[in-house]
Design a protein around this nucleic acid. Structure first.
Length: 706
DNA sequence: ACTGAGACTTGGAATAATTTTC
DNA sequence: GAAAATTATTCCAAGTCTCAGT
């Protein structure tokens, strides 16, 4: 099997090369090794120096013996650095690697090329779990886990800048100043104008001020001096020279190095979020009832640590403090957790997205979605049947139809005193639904706030017979046509929705009054083991991408899509776009969007003028051939500009990244890239995605199907 | 069946880094 | 060569779903 990713050695950003057989980045080898050794040293030395040495040694020994039992090729008994190094290098070599990459090491070393002008695509080293047999017992996530815990934000340093109240200069205690500064820091955000935010903040601020304080209310507070101070600080930071900035960065890297990598079983893994969240004002999304509340300082005493029994436990870096507790839960993947001070929510420290633990569960997620693919016809039949019944069963199947066809979320209940009022399928209310009709038949209009208070507005209707109209609707992201073959079911769904939203119900009543996500999932488990509502989102997203990408196979305009990387990328992004629309993944349009588009318009206009000018000149020119060329050139530039503008408009409020990161089986993309002239994967996956999906890059060949 | 604790995935915004443009 | 635009990364909020206890 030819593997794009892992055989090339050329880490040059493709750029020039169209579709030479030569694969693009895979520079991973090189940086891989480099990074490895340095990192290792960090971790190891850190483990040795910072942790109680005896404990460390002890644990290491145990680990070693363990490892020997596990795989016996590893029996050097010098110190651990070496231990890891050899492992890392050995592991790939001894495993099936050999088959395809005899050239690998040669490549690595054989490149003494000059500096690339462009960015290098470095790929993080990852432990290649998919090449390992996994002898872990059921439910166990690891045998050995050792790490250095978490890193705390620095203590608050009072700046002494005085705010004003009613025109008077006010002195604050450091504690009071700290939260006044948090407030000042948010003065230019939207939160600053929100009553709930101000109310919640004032409650805490006034408490901190105490009774009889000179400051009596928020309205007459003037935080401007602090705001100015913060601005000045920011400016100062910005004004640092390149060298100074670099120095700071390096210092930070150095202090964080011990936390970046952890030991999991017999290899190293990247840690994820080992930085404890700093105190600040809570910024909920949407109309969150708790926005503006102070998110308190987290102390070691709030944190529970998880590591293996035979590991050297993480040392608490704050003098005079201690972790709340130390546990050894090998059926869990978290390294540490604490509860936030807003709603008492759990905050976990996990390994990074590229780690084996995340990778394995990611793969399982997609495998489950593929399992659903095998059963989906049967399940849909069952749903179709169920639509015709009444009571609970009708509700269940109507809800499922929506979940399957519109890719909406399950919709757990929420307590609106504690959280923003958002809904999903099971929690839809009558006020979110509008039934109607148009030329084609019945329609349902959905209008509600979903996760993160993102608007979901969708007019669901039958596809018009008139091609023109169909096309129009297709381009409207707020309209979706009922899937082919589902027309009859849709009519039934509309009838059901009519009865579920009938006049006897208030707008604030639940549509599915007998449903909750838990009973719905119980029902789904019956249809397929392990099936839950969210699997439909994964399934439909991935299935859609697979379908869309395969359309290129015998597309009438295939060759024009394959003309160059840009056109091919556009084809991919259009497919990705379909998914993003399906899943309602949106993003804020930049504040300067309008002016940006205006600029583009002007540019295009300018080019047109230039073109007209050229054409005029051509008539009287002696060198007609050259002029012709120039004109053609310009026309090409204009068309490029115009497509760019189209893309910009199309993607204005749409986020493609969310589906890429969470919903699209990476193997679909990998296969497509391999199928079409080794299309450079790094045009569709950035560095983190390539790291995260290394398993898929290895696994999927060109005819892999979701 | 119901509840709440717990664990893990998913999500957009903020911020940092890089590239493009003028 | 600086400003603007674009892209990658970090941050942390907000979902889903499981499970244990009643």
């Amino acid at each position: 099997s030819r593997l794009t990713m892992s055989e090339s050695d050329d880490d040059k950003p493709l750029k020039s090369s169209k579709k030479e057989p030569k694969p693009e980045e895979d520079d991973d080898d090189v940086p891989l090794k480099k990074a490895k050794s340095s990192k290792k040293e960090n971790v190891q030395s850190q483990v040795k120096e910072e942790n109680a040495p005896t404990a460390a040694k002890e644990s290491k020994k145990k680990k070693k013996t363990k490892r020997k039992r596990g795989d016996d090729d590893d029996d050097d008994d010098d110190d651990d650095e070496e231990d890891f190094d050899t492992r890392k290098k050995k592991a790939p070599a001894k495993k099936e690697k050999s088959s395809k990459s005899s050239s690998k090491s040669a490549k690595t070393d054989g490149k003494g090329q000059p500096k690339k002008p462009k960015k290098e695509v470095k790929v993080e080293p990852v432990y290649e779990w998919w090449k390992d047999e996994q002898p872990l017992a059921q439910g166990k996530k690891w045998r050995f886990l050792e790490h250095n815990g978490v890193i705390f934000p620095p203590n608050y340093e009072p700046h002494g800048v005085k705010m004003k109240y009613d025109g008077q200069i006010i002195s604050l205690t450091p504690e009071q100043e700290a939260i006044a500064t948090m407030y000042a820091a948010m003065s230019r955000t939207d939160y600053a104008g929100k009553d709930v935010f101000k109310k919640n903040f004032w409650k805490e601020f006034s408490e901190k001020l105490g009774k009889n304080h000179a400051i009596k209310d928020l309205e007459n507070c003037d935080f401007q001096p602090i705001v100015d101070h913060l601005d000045a600080e920011r400016e100062k930071k910005k004004a640092l020279t390149k060298e100074e900035k670099l120095k700071i960065k390096q210092a930070k890297e150095k202090t964080e190095a011990p936390y970046v990598t952890v030991v999991l079983d017999s290899h190293l893994e990247k840690n994820g979020n080992f930085r404890v969240e700093p105190a600040g004002l809570f910024r909920g999304r949407g109309e969150h009832p708790k926005m503006g509340q102070v998110k308190g300082v987290i102390q070691p005493e709030d944190i529970t640590m998880n590591c293996s029994e035979d590991a050297c436990p993480p040392r608490c870096s704050l003098p005079g403090h201690a972790w709340q507790s130390l546990v050894h839960k090998d059926e869990q993947t978290w390294l540490a957790f604490y509860k936030d001070t807003i709603n008492g929510e759990f905050k976990y420290v996990f390994l990074s997205a590229g780690s084996s633990l995340k990778g394995q569960s990611d793969r399982e997620k997609f495998e489950k979605a593929r399992e659903l693919k095998k059963h989906v016809a049967r399940i849909r039949q069952r749903i179709t049947q169920g639509l015709k019944s009444s009571g609970l069963e009708m509700q269940q199947n109507t809800a499922l139809w929506l979940i399957d066809n519109l890719a909406i979320r399950a919709g757990n209940e929420k307590d609106t005193n504690e959280e923003a009022d958002t809904v999903g399928c099971c929690s839809l209310r009558v006020e979110h639904i509008t039934l109607g009709t148009d030329e084609e038949g019945p329609t349902i209009y959905f209008n509600f706030l979903g996760k993160d208070s993102i608007e979901y507005k969708n007019l669901v209707k039958l596809r018009p017979k008139d091609e023109e109209k169909a096309k129009e609707g297709e381009e409207n992201p707020c309209v979706s046509f009922v899937r082919e073959g589902e027309e009859k079911n849709f009519r039934r769904v509309v009838e059901n929705m009519r009865s579920l939203t009938s006049n006897s119900k208030k707008p604030s009543d639940d549509v599915f009054d007998q449903l909750n996500t838990s009973s719905l999932n119980t029902y789904l488990k019956d249809l397929m083991p392990g099936l839950t509502a969210k699997v439909f989102r994964t399934y439909n997203a991935s299935f859609t991408l697979d379908q869309e990408l395969y359309k290129l196979e015998d597309h009438p305009e295939k060759s024009s899509f394959l003309r160059n990387d840009a056109t091919q990328l556009k084809f991919y992004n259009d497919a990705n776009y379909q998914v993003a629309i399906l899943c309602n993944h949106s993003r804020a349009v930049s504040k300067t969007f309008d002016s940006q588009v205006e600029k583009m318009d002007e540019k295009i206009k300018g080019l047109h003028e230039e073109l007209a000018d050229l054409k005029k000149k051509k008539k009287s020119a002696d060198n007609k051939e050259q002029m012709k060329k120039k004109i053609a050139n310009l026309e090409e530039r204009i068309s490029k500009q115009e497509t760019q503008k189209q893309i910009k408009l199309k993607l204005a409020g749409v986020a493609l990244s969310t589906s890429k990161v969470n919903y699209l089986d990476p193997r679909i993309t990998v296969a497509w890239c391999k199928r079409f002239g080794n299309f450079p994967l790094n045009k569709v996956f950035n560095k983190s995605l390539i790291t995260k999906f290394k398993w898929a890059i290895d696994e999927a060949d060109e005819d892999w199907r979701f």
